[in-house]
Design a protein around this nucleic acid. Structure first.
Lengths: 211, 211
DNA sequence: GGAAGATTGTCAATTTTTAAACAAACTTTT
DNA sequence: AAAAGTTTGTTTAAAAATTGACAATCTTCC
């Protein structure tokens, strides 16, 4: 359908465009040029135009881009026009934080189940959702579709649970564990390695001092 | 001291090398070649050698790299040989998750204070740390050094609080709010935009279907 | 409705990043 | 202790990403 193969560098920037366009809508801005957007976002106008043109011509010469239209188009490109059923594995603070974040639901990411290995948590409520014991995962997956699994559990468990989930047909993993998952090629893995993020701060702080 | 200017692409990869080397140490591996490491990490050996050589020659021909030595050197490069005092702004689930994660302390990131705007949370304990009211931020900063501020608050507050923190001398921000901070150039900002991360999953799921 | 001004889409040039190749130098084996 | 085998550090080549430039074309103003 759309031309393969868009570079990952472009994909990484799309959500940020989307965020800025959303803010512009809230501000009541109807149109914007690549030049003005580039000043707000601190990127080059050329990059904005080239990124967008990977997916088609959304703008118009002499006018710029219609904010609402472009916003909706990017949503479509990103697949935000559909709903995604998300299960959370791990009902610790991180799992709770994700479950409780309302903005995800607004973008079509619905928390449909939460699992934890701790029996004491089984049956307790997190937001609208009841925590199930991890042993019920297979039974659940037999009756319910899972688009995305968020893994907010320690690394030792994460790799094994990802295996189990893959066997149940889950193809997308939002991995918060401090490890790489070992799932087959036909999966989407997006890792959020918080400790690596902190280390980059540490490096940048250090290298700032040295100038 | 060390040669400027290392590309950010290299810096992003360093923590991952560090993680793998840590695992090798746990496994009792004493030496490793770039070739073997490249197979484990699924990157090219050439990239590993070139990345490391930005900081000096840590290996030896015919031998490879001493795991423990390289591990320590990367720690030093990343600034993990010092301690960093971290304050958390926002005692919600995300703030709690960060405060409770013991591995950070192991790497020298010490949670020294937690602030929240909600008076009901003031005085409550999170791990070892008591929550203070956000209004006490200035008073606290006058008597205590802050290396890094973690912002786990909504976007509207995050930008303002970052301003306040900058005026108090804080130069590094770990930003979890869904916005860009507007702090001066002499700051380190590391943003963790979870919703953007989710959107990339959505895009990749969609583009996987289309093949 | 025509002229002046603005802005896109795209091509070309530049810069950055990644990968390949290989001489130099060390380790291991015999 | 010499030969055979490894493996690095570095150079060179290739690929990818970013930026610059501009004709084409739309909008706005008069």
């Amino acid at each position: 359908m759309s031309d393969n193969k868009i570079s990952t560098a472009v994909i990484k920037r799309l959500p940020r465009y989307y965020r800025y366009l959303g803010e512009l809508i809230e501000m009541g801005v109807e149109r914007i040029s690549s030049n003005e957007l580039s000043e707000r976002m601190k990127v080059t106008a050329s990059q904005i135009r080239q990124d967008l043109n990977n997916f088609g011509g959304f703008g118009q010469q002499g006018y710029g881009y219609n904010v609402k239209y472009l916003y909706d188009e990017i949503a479509r490109i990103l697949g935000l026009d559909r709903t995604h059923k998300v299960v959370i594995i791990g009902a610790g603070n991180l799992g709770r934080a994700i479950a409780g974040y309302g903005n995800f639901a607004k973008r079509g990411f619905l928390i449909t189940a939460i699992f934890d290995i701790n029996p004491e948590l089984t049956g307790t409520d997190i937001g609208e959702t009841k925590v199930s014991h991890l042993s019920e995962l297979e039974e659940y997956a037999r009756h319910n579709h899972i688009d995305i699994a968020a893994l907010t559990i320690p690394k030792t468990q994460a790799v094994m649970v990802a295996d189990r989930l893959y066997k149940l047909g889950v193809k997308a993993f939002w991995n918060f564990a401090h490890t790489d998952l070992n799932v087959p090629q036909d999966c989407v893995v997006e890792s959020v390695h918080l400790s690596e993020s902190l280390m980059r701060i540490s490096y940048n702080l250090k290298s700032m001092e040295e100038d």
